[in-house]
Design a protein around this nucleic acid. Structure first.
Lengths: 126, 126
DNA sequence: AGTGATTGTTGAGAGTGTCAAGTATTGAAG
DNA sequence: CTTCAATACTTGACACTCTCAACAATCACT
C-alpha cells in the first residue's frame, strides 16, 4: 500500500521542482518555528552530513536560510524565507487532494478511515 | 502519514542491503512470472534508462537475470534467480510485521482498517 | 584547564533519477 | 516489399541523495 504512493508523492514534489527529502524538510519547518539541522536529520532518518547538502540547495534557491541559535553556537537553525513559506502553503494545499482510490470510497468508509488514522497518529511521538 | 513511513520502509530494505527501488523491483517480479523491463519502469514511475542500472546491479548480485522474450526480440524479461526468490520471501515476511502505531490500535480498528484498505486496493488497476 | 560528547561540514564513493542520443526490432502503410 | 514511425532498451552526461570517515568548533562536566 505505502510503496504504491511513492510515484504520487514524487509527482507532487516534481510540480514544484522538489525532491522527496526537500519536500519533507520544508514540511518539517513550521512558520516562525526554525528547526535545528539535527532535527531534520532525525526526521529524515538519515546522516547529518546529508542534511548539509539538502540545506545548501534549498538555501541557494532562497527557500530557507541558516540562522544562529543564540543558546548554542554549534547549532544552525533553519527558517523558511517568505518564498519558502509560500511554497510550503502551496505544497500542503496540493497534498490535501486525496488520491482517486480514496475518493472512490463510500462516505462512511472515508469517515472511518479518517478517525482510525487520527488514532494512529496519536500513537506516535511528535 | 505516508511520508512518515519512509524511514521504516528504507530500514527494511537496508536489512537486506537493498535500496527502495530495488525492493520494489523484486516485489514486482512474481515467482515464475518474469516481467519486462518496461513494466518495471511503469511500476516505478521512472524513466526506462533508470531500470537498466537497477537491473544491472541486481543481476550482478545474482538476484535476477535478463531473459529473452521469444515473441518480441526487443524485450528483456526479468526473472528472479533462486537466491532472488528466497530474498523476496524474506522481504515479504519482514514486511508483514505491522508498525507499532498499528499494533497499538484496538482490534476493531485494525479489522476496519484492513477492510477499508482492501476496498482501496480494489479501486486500482493491477 | 581537560576530557568527551554533540553539531555541523567536507570529500570520496555508490546509488537513483532525468534527459538526449543511439541501436535494434516491430508493425503497419504505401 | 520497402519505408517509416513507434517501441524497448542502452549509453553517457549531469544533478541529487545517501553513507562513511575525518575534521573543526562548541558545549558540558570535572
Amino acid at each position: 500500500m505505502f510503496s504504491r504512493q511513492r510515484p504520487r508523492w514524487m509527482a507532487i514534489g516534481a510540480e514544484f521542482d522538489l525532491t522527496p527529502p526537500q519536500v519533507m524538510t520544508i514540511n518539517r519547518i513550521e512558520p516562525d518555528r526554525p528547526a535545528p539541522m539535527s532535527d531534520i536529520a532525525r526526521w529524515l532518518a538519515c546522516d547529518a552530513s546529508n542534511v548539509t547538502g539538502i540545506t545548501d540547495r534549498l538555501e541557494k534557491r532562497g527557500l530557507l536560510e541558516r540562522q544562529n541559535d543564540p543558546g548554542d553556537r554549534r547549532v544552525r537553525m533553519l527558517a523558511l524565507t517568505p518564498e519558502g513559506l509560500e511554497l510550503r502553503a502551496e505544497l500542503q494545499e496540493r497534498s490535501r487532494i486525496p488520491p482517486p482510490e480514496i475518493i472512490a470510497l463510500s462516505a462512511e468508509d472515508q469517515a472511518s478511515l479518517r478517525d482510525i488514522l487520527l488514532r494512529v497518529m496519536e500513537n506516535r511521538g511528535p
